[in-house]
Design a protein around this nucleic acid. Sequence first.
DNA 1: CCCTTTTATAGTCGCACTGACTATTAAAGG
DNA 2: CCTTTAATAGTCAGTGCGACTATAAAAGGG
Lengths: 239, 239
Amino acid sequence: MDGYDKYAYEPFAVTADLAVFTLRAGVLHVLLVERGEEPYAGRWALPGGFVRPDEAAESAARRELGEETGLTDVSGLHLEQLRTYSEPGRDPRMRVVSVAFAALLPDAPEARGGSDAAEARWTPYDAARELAFDHDRILADARGRVGAKLEYTCLATAFCPPEFTLGELQQVYETVWGAELDRPNFRRKVLATPGFVEAVPGAARLTGGRGKPAALYRAGTAAALHPPLLRPTPEGRPA
Amino acid sequence: MDGYDKYAYEPFAVTADLAVFTLRAGVLHVLLVERGEEPYAGRWALPGGFVRPDEAAESAARRELGEETGLTDVSGLHLEQLRTYSEPGRDPRMRVVSVAFAALLPDAPEARGGSDAAEARWTPYDAARELAFDHDRILADARGRVGAKLEYTCLATAFCPPEFTLGELQQVYETVWGAELDRPNFRRKVLATPGFVEAVPGAARLTGGRGKPAALYRAGTAAALHPPLLRPTPEGRPA
DNA sequence: CCCTTTTATAGTCGCACTGACTATTAAAGG
DNA sequence: CCTTTAATAGTCAGTGCGACTATAAAAGGG
């Protein structure tokens, strides 16, 4: 921070890019925009854009999300910094440093193309490949982070509407982890963790489906899970 | 990423700042440099500096560490991105975006002032207060991250020399967490976790201390701890 | 040279958590 | 009315971990 001179070094452009996840019909979806200009014109990319001189990267992320995808009701949006990508050559035109964010949305309001992007669309995670720039890597990093944070935080409720059933919460885990969980055990664990969820007191039952109606819960006040809810070991490790 | 124009926005300066931790005599220390210029001249700060046009923030972090503190044998250095601080007004002179890193060093080679900084010094963590810029906050964030990562990764070995005793490894946890651990239980847990440590086969005993000499171990190949090694609950939560 | 101190290592006991599984309840659909 | 579906309740055994006791191997002091 010494040897300071305002124009001693070539300036950088700084962008905020977002990997926004949601669950639709039990499938993990990510929000993508279609690029209208070169480079990578016509390719899909993560929404994002330049950080303005008077705002932090977090503010830029929220603003760009609204501008590019029409998602303005970002009240229930969980936004969290992922990491910063600064390798030279990320952008073929100039030096761009991207602060990447991972975001989670409860329901999935339809996205529309905004002012900047030609089109915005929810895309199944597995179909989001060959994105522009290094966005494949950013998206994979974000997905890994979300999966890991489900283990030791209450993040899963950020995928759910304000009131939800334990079955819906379990679906979040099963979808993100790609693994099936035992329902009674999941229920026992969630209810035994203080502050994870709290029961909705009234006539809190949701009907409309086939079987017995489920009780409704709200997200609790806890942020971390102690002890964590570990994902089933795929193979080998007896832990 | 559209509406792209090289000079459409005021450029940003990008720096890489480091919170470098080590353990000396059972006390957590952090590496600080004394600022030689305004603003904050004479104040202590985290080492760091401008990212050059042809390098990534990670490279800049390693380079600045050597330039400012004389620490060149960064072979055993564990370096990991923390997060990026981009709030306007962080630097009173211009818009600076800082990519912050947390780093861990096994032993503590003495630091010297480098080309940029007036002086570099290892400081006990608790004495590192009122740093320049927003470095107090960055340092606190880094410390929190290191403490949390000890729970579910093998990061603790990064504080140890290539060969170490289980007592030394336990000291790492106790120092960073500020809590005492039961020695037999710690030992059982570490040895039961495959890939955490591996015994040094030969006449692997370290003498010189008072009591029975301890067996030596090396860092294993595992990166994560399954199940995690949770820090003792300070109070309340029965987990 | 013995005995105390110090530290490493080995082992025990009980509780809490979890995985696997079975049983019951309450709705919808034919 | 009976079947299907899904939620909820409960059981049981294995495992991990906290708390604790016991033994082994060195240094140091008389």
